[in-house]
Design a protein around this nucleic acid. Structure first.
Ligand SMILES: [Mn+2]
Ligand SMILES: [Mn+2]
Ligand SMILES: [Zn+2]
Ligand SMILES: [Zn+2]
Lengths: 149, 149
DNA sequence: GTTGGTGTTTAGAATGATTCAAAATCTGAC
DNA sequence: GTCAGATTTTGAATCATTCTAAACACCAAC
């Protein structure tokens, strides 16, 4: 069961879409709320399954369309690991991803500004960066594994 | 035109394959020499085209097989950028990749040990890393763009 | 030097995530 | 209410990769 967007979230959506001359639609609201509701980096198909619970007529193509629109707006990031299905992440803070090879789960890893700066510094002159992606692979010793969802 | 492997390179190949109980074959030699000859991170298809110049009967499936074998041996790395075709890299030193969005070219970026260490340090307790991938996106101001190939 | 087993290569079919194309639907301005 | 433009829907197309089964190469044993 997906809760609706808060007024604040809806405004964020509306504002981001407006930048590209696009509008809030019922489908976009549902898809965005799915992403916000459970931040486990779902695949397109997982988003589709979850979104259909609140909007049964929704089509897979529309989920692809919405997600592409959000990425274009900068509202959402794509997360790729090797050749697996693309996953989606609404966390706009700079962060890296850790993919647990035993569970398949993807975790956000906070990325301090100074680390980002260090990374940029390894580029030779003439390389102008638009974005940096960092992904870790491994497994988690889940002793005190706290984290909701 | 692909030159043959040096004796040293052939030994590296043989030694790496031996670890998994596998043998050097004519096809594996050709595919590996293609990777060493032009280190521009070719896709499977590009490897295929180049390899066929010295071995016309070679099949695409074999190129996939060889590359997978090399990756399994640790002889070669896979390089993924977004959803594009996988590329292959025989550079075994720790390095990041920079993908020039205007040319599509992928460059190696040397990765100093201390930077790698800094990166590992951002992981919370309980996260055990097997590998880290770093990819930059952007474009290159090609003023004094030197670099053979 | 023939034979049999094992790993490798080959050709082609199958898969599956993603993209595309075209018709149907919605929306908001006039 | 009508129209134009944007969005959504359905189903087909794409295309990199994987799978399957048959042919082949290699080598050790006879
Ligand atoms: Mn703004
Ligand atoms: Mn060894
Ligand atoms: Zn994330
Ligand atoms: Zn490389």
């Amino acid at each position: 069961m997906i809760q609706n967007l808060t007024e604040h979230q809806r405004e964020g959506l509306q504002e981001a879409l407006a930048h590209g001359g696009q509008k809030v639609t019922a489908q976009r609201e549902v898809v965005y709320s799915v992403l916000l509701a459970k931040r486990d980096h779902p695949t397109v198909d997982e988003v589709f399954q979850r979104a259909r619970e609140s909007m049964p007529g929704l089509s897979l193509a529309t989920v692809y369309n919405c997600l592409e629109t959000f990425v274009g707006c900068g509202l959402v990031r794509q997360v790729n690991h090797e050749r697996e299905s693309t996953r989606y992440c609404p966390n706009l803070a700079p962060h890296a991803h850790f993919r647990d090879d035993s569970t398949g789960r993807v975790h956000d890893i906070e990325l301090p500004a100074n680390v980002l700066q260090t990374l940029r510094s390894i580029l030779p002159a003439g390389f102008e960066t638009d974005s940096i992606e960092i992904s870790f692979h491994g497994h988690t010793k889940n002793k005190t594994s706290r984290h909701s969802n």
